[in-house]
Design a binder for these strands. Structure first.
Lengths: 121, 121
DNA sequence: TCAACATATGTTCATCTGTTCATATATTAA
DNA sequence: TTAATATATGAACAGATGAACATATGTTGA
């Protein structure tokens, strides 16, 4: 064991604990993917879009109306959601209907919503 | 019904759908809280800290060692996690041990991790 | 073909965020 | 008290991000 492994000035203090944690932690790439996914959810506009299409497919125009937002703003956010594969879309003439890619997203969000709703403390 | 309720140039097109969605959607304040929570998870440094203390309490010094980060950086991020009530801490002499506030956080993250791990597509 | 409409995209700008450096606070031991 | 150590915090800076505007693309019907 090298000097770098010593922590808090003590000998072998939390060394074992640290090694244990290292073993169980997802690798760097996965953590970044995870953070990126949460980043998508971290904007209230995107979240409102996601919540809107959670059970219904909606066209861009509907989303603009519903969320009282610029068409440009909505399209830009939809682009981000498309890139991150969280939504799918279907073209029907001039219109494009968006819906959630799968049920995972809904689960993650409703779990988080529960936490919020309990968390008065 | 007013003109503003017309969407996509059609008469009463997705009007009912929109109203339905409006009914079911969480209110603005809740959405913002939700977004704020996801914002906390959206940084890989914070995520690594959270993952590290998911089953073990660790002191700041351990976290620096484990994550190979500045003590200042770690403290700043811990401050954010404290403010958002996602972690709790315990002082023991000079050291401060951090751990997760409750199991919700773990559930949300592991759910998201599952999504990531499946999502090769 | 052209006009009208729905959507997408490039660019700019103001704002936010994470990291670092320097320094402050707090605790322990001598 | 002073020195050493663990942690917290303030300021500054680089990079990221969301919104808006202008414009491009694609589709339909005349």
């Amino acid at each position: 064991m090298k000097m770098e492994d010593f922590v808090c000035g003590e000998k072998y203090p939390h060394y074992k604990v640290i090694k244990d944690v290292e073993m169980k932690t997802p690798d760097e790439e996965e953590i970044i993917d995870l953070a990126d996914m949460f980043k998508i959810f971290s904007d209230s506009t995107r979240l409102r879009i996601i919540l809107a299409i959670i059970n219904t497919e909606l066209c861009v125009c509907d989303l603009c109306e519903l969320l009282k937002l610029n068409q440009s703003t909505v399209s830009h956010q939809l682009q981000i959601l498309r890139t991150s594969k969280l939504v799918k879309y279907r073209k029907e003439g001039k219109q494009v209907f968006y819906s959630l890619q799968d049920g995972h997203v809904e689960q993650i969000i409703s779990q988080a919503l529960e936490h919020i709703q309990e968390g008065g403390r």
